[in-house]
């Protein structure tokens, strides 16, 4: 009889996943560390230059600049997405029919790829024929020629808004299911104690959603850390380098400037940041507890 012992069949069953993950994910991550010490265009012979790429990346300020832009985007995305998703999720948790219909529409942007969304929004924001500028002009606000994505002071914020447009519905679905799991008896008890809707919201809904807030925060932060597709399409890192976040910077170094070493430095920073973020979240928020809570529900 089959117990918990390993046998040859079980080893065979494990192999495909291990081989694929090892060869195309895990080993490449480690190889990136080695590449970060090379001067190499990917074709000709590589030379080992030690820490040169690292010191150069930080001395030239480019890597630091991209790192700050990435942090800025993460903060913007969190601020734009989390509060709005929460309110929308509470709304969608209601059982009324119109809320269900609304929810169906909210979800549609998630069906499109980030590049499809990016292309559409770059037309909506177009300073000549775009929807937004034409509308603003029609109602008499401004002269209708604001170049939203071409303005270095606005570009990052606009990018964060487009990302929010696509992902707020996703996060609010998480909040919706979070709210639906709150026992109704809590609200009934609060009402008997004379609590109004606002008090109920702040004293019951918010604390009960603690783990959902952690989940969405994790997803928003880890997702934004490596955000690439949409930025590639709408600004390509520009204007200038106003939106050249880490992933964008890495792509340009490795695949446009053909500087594999410099690109790998950024890749290693991305991997380290991803791991660090996960460890911090595990440590300070009790993500484990959240998972076991979800399993139990």
């Amino acid at each position: 009889m089959l117990g918990s012992r390993m046998n040859w069949q079980r080893w065979v069953m494990m192999l495909p996943a291990i081989i694929f993950f090892g060869a195309f994910a895990l080993v490449p991550m480690l190889v990136a560390v080695y590449y970060s010490g090379l001067r190499w265009d990917g074709v000709s012979k590589a030379t080992w230059v030690g820490l040169f790429n690292w010191t150069h990346a930080f001395a030239s300020g480019q890597a630091v600049h991209s790192l700050w832009l990435t942090v800025e985007l993460m903060v913007l995305c969190w601020l734009l997405q989390n509060p709005l998703s929460l309110v929308l999720g509470v709304f969608m948790a209601g059982k009324q029919r119109h809320r269900t219909v609304y929810g169906v529409v909210y979800f549609i942007p998630l069906l499109f790829s980030a590049v499809a969304i990016g292309i559409t929004w770059s037309y909506i924001l177009d300073p000549e024929f775009g929807l937004i500028d034409s509308l603003l002009k029609a109602v008499g606000i401004g002269n209708g020629t604001e170049n939203w994505l071409g303005n270095p002071h606005l570009a990052m914020f606009v990018v964060a808004c487009i990302i929010a447009w696509q992902f707020i519905p996703f996060n609010s679905l998480l909040y919706q299911s979070g709210v639906r799991q709150i026992p109704a008896s809590l609200y009934e008890a609060a009402m008997l104690d004379g609590a109004g809707p606002l008090q109920s919201f702040f004293h019951i809904t918010l604390p009960q959603l603690k783990y959902t807030i952690i989940t969405t925060t994790v997803l928003i932060l880890t997702g934004t850390l490596t955000y690439f597709d949409l930025i590639y399409v709408v600004t390509n890192g520009g204007p200038g380098d106003a939106t050249e976040v880490l992933a964008m910077h890495m792509y340009k170094e490795a695949f446009t400037n053909l500087n594999i070493g410099a690109g790998s430095v950024i890749a290693v920073i991305l991997a380290a940041a991803g791991l660090l973020l996960s460890i911090l979240i595990l440590k300070f928020t009790g993500f484990n507890r959240m998972e076991s809570q979800m399993e139990g529900s």
Binding site: F24, P28, Y251, A267, L277
Partner: peptide, 29 residues
């Protein structure tokens, strides 16, 4: 088996690793 447990943990760490971090070596490979 302890090996199996380790394999699972490695995959869990893999959840935190972004595609972007491996794309250059994947391209070469």
């Amino acid at each position: 088996s302890r090996t199996v447990r380790t394999v699972f943990n490695v995959f869990l760490v893999g959840l935190a690793l972004p595609i972007q971090a491996a794309i250059i070596p994947v391209y070469i490979l």
